[in-house]
């Protein structure tokens, strides 16, 4: 029985990007299916953050095609905003809005960008804050929360928009070690719910547990893609081996 093929969630086809003369993304080919969990890793400067920032057009690619949920990313501002409403992002520096409460942070975009009415937006916000186990802080300001709590609020805020894809740009790198676990647990729960996720991270334990495929990038190129077991135990490329040996000493 043939099923109609759904378009991949994210599709990179020959994508290049330069910062001046520096080739930050070099001939990227990557297909990510709906429901897949991808972990992107690599040394700093390898272009992994730039890669996922291209997915919601925070960065523009210069050559090649990039399709998100079937929509080609280019040009028109209105179209980009629509794509962004379907793609959620969690930043390394949390980037919560400090002048709004936790609840207001979560309801801002649904009310003002998606024309949801206030009651519905707040109900959904509470439900998601409950899910990331921070609903009791709903009326506090971000400045009063710890790093781990802020990052969980950031995850809830992104989820309030009902995204089809979630991007995570080194979500635990700015956290104190004791708070990393609470955020990772939240992300694991999200993965188990079937969300399409692209995660840039150094947390290899998370990759082993949750990832469907691990992407290794170096100097702007994708060096190796493999499921976690083969990736960690038998990497095919020399560069991957070197990186892993530095990481897992």
């Amino acid at each position: 029985m043939t099923q109609p093929r759904k378009p991949p969630a994210v599709e990179f086809a020959g994508v290049h990007k330069w910062y001046g003369a520096f080739h930050v993304l070099s001939d990227i080919h990557l297909h990510i299916e709906t429901g897949e969990r991808i972990v992107v890793c690599g040394p700093s400067g390898s272009g992994k953050s730039t890669l996922i920032r291209c997915v919601n057009r925070l960065e523009e690619h210069h050559r090649g095609a990039l399709r998100v949920n079937g929509v080609e990313l280019s040009g028109a501002e209105a179209q980009i905003d629509r794509v962004r409403r379907e793609v959620g992002m969690v930043f390394q520096q949390f980037n919560l809005f400090p002048h709004l409460t936790v609840l207001q942070n979560c309801t801002l975009a649904p009310i003002w960008a998606s024309a949801t009415n206030r009651r519905e937006a707040e109900a959904r916000a509470f439900a998601l804050l409950e899910k990331v186990r921070i609903a009791d802080q709903a009326h506090k300001y971000p400045g009063a929360l710890s790093g781990g709590q802020q990052q969980r609020v950031a995850i809830a805020r992104a989820l309030c928009m009902n995204p089809k894809i979630m991007l995570f740009d080194e979500p635990t790198s700015a956290l104190d070690p004791e708070m990393v676990k609470e955020v990772l647990d939240t992300m694991v729960a999200l993965a188990e719910d079937g969300m399409t996720m692209i995660v840039v991270t150094h947390e290899m334990g998370f990759a082993r547990r949750v990832a469907d495929r691990v992407v290794f990038m170096d100097h702007g190129e994708i060096v190796e893609i493999a499921p976690p077991e083969p990736f960690f135990s038998a990497p095919r490329q020399e560069r991957t081996r070197q990186f892993l040996s530095q990481l897992l000493h």
Binding site: H16, W18, G20, A21, H23, S26, D27, R63, E221, V223
Partner: peptide, 10 residues
């Protein structure tokens, strides 16, 4: 791995 060096749009 890419073969040819692709140059920026100069």
């Amino acid at each position: 791995m890419t073969d040819a060096r692709v140059l920026p749009p100069s």
